[in-house]
């Protein structure tokens, strides 16, 4: 319950939990093609079960990888996500995760450290106070959830591309991988990591990031769906292999660009 105290004013905890419950993976997720009732007739016609079976799932995942490449081509490091005025900020800004807010990590900012690894010259871990001293950028952008809803929020923090240069990261590496306190993780492509609006968010609406929004560190990238924006980040690795991610590994599109 300790984390509830850190709720920003105006946030209704019951709403938050309802939101979180919606994105809980269903036990049937490994069999997600079983619901294909509207195509049942077709599979009877063709006399095989490509529609229901693992063949269809594999074929769909191949197309999803193809869509990753198309999205990488469509992505432009100079195309900026629209920014909005203060008045457009969604209040209360929703909390969304695959767990309830009570279960969200309750991190001690004094002892927390950001671990750095992979193809980086200086792997010294960073403390929160040190990150807070770096030049700050600000954005009011729209967070678009894979579920379809969206909300406009205000984030402040360190531009990730500046940070990567500061620590001597190999900017020709293909991926940046993030590990989070609750076990969440995901991998993003280097072009997105270097996008000017990709930031290491330390604040929400000019206040220290509340627990609900990922204290102490959220990676905010308005060019990707919400689930690609990790919260409670504890480690960052620059690497050439794709380490996947929590939702990506369950079938969500890897690139998930906007």
């Amino acid at each position: 319950m300790a984390s509830l105290k850190k709720l920003p004013p105006g946030v209704d905890p019951r709403l938050l939990i309802k939101d979180a419950a919606k994105s809980l993976p269903q036990p049937s997720r490994r069999l997600f093609l079983r619901g294909a009732a509207s195509l049942g007739a077709l599979s009877m016609l063709t006399g095989c079960d490509i529609i229901d079976g693992p063949t269809a799932e594999n074929a769909l995942r191949v197309v999803s990888r193809f869509n990753d490449r198309i999205q990488a081509l469509l992505f432009s490091e100079t195309t900026l996500a629209p920014e909005y005025p203060e008045s457009a900020i969604t209040r209360p800004f929703p909390f969304n995760a695959y767990y309830s807010l009570e279960e969200a990590p309750d991190i001690d900012g004094e002892t927390w450290q950001l671990e750095i690894g992979g193809l980086v010259d200086n792997k010294k871990p960073w403390r929160l106070a040190e990150l807070n001293q770096l030049p700050e950028v600000s954005q009011i952008t729209r967070l678009v959830c894979v579920e379809g809803w969206s909300a406009i929020g205000s984030w402040q923090g360190v531009r990730l591309s500046d940070f990567l240069k500061r620590i001597g990261a190999d900017l020709t590496a293909k991926y940046v991988w993030f590990q989070c306190a609750e076990g969440y993780s995901n991998t993003i492509d280097m072009p997105t990591a270097l996008h000017p609006q990709t930031i290491m968010a330390l604040k929400f609406d000019h206040q220290t990031l509340p627990a609900a929004y990922g204290f102490p560190l959220k990676i905010r990238m308005p060019t990707k769906l919400g689930f690609k924006n990790p919260k409670y980040v504890t480690a960052m690795w620059v690497q050439n292999n794709d380490a996947g991610g929590y939702w990506e590994n369950q079938g969500y599109n890897w690139f998930s660009g906007l």
């Binding site: 993976p25 269903q26 049937s28 997720r29 069999l31 997600f32 093609l33 079983r34 619901g35 294909a36 009732a37 509207s38 195509l39 799932e57 074929a59 769909l60 995942r61 197309v63 999803s64 869509n67 894979v146 579920e147 939702w247 369950q250 079938g251 969500y252 599109n253």
Partner: peptide
């Protein structure tokens, strides 16, 4: 209802939709 929809859950439906 899922019975008349396709994909079983969100990720499955998105795979079908974007294919």
């Amino acid at each position: 209802p899922s019975q008349i929809a396709l994909g079983g859950w969100l990720a499955g439906a998105l795979l079908w939709h974007f294919a």
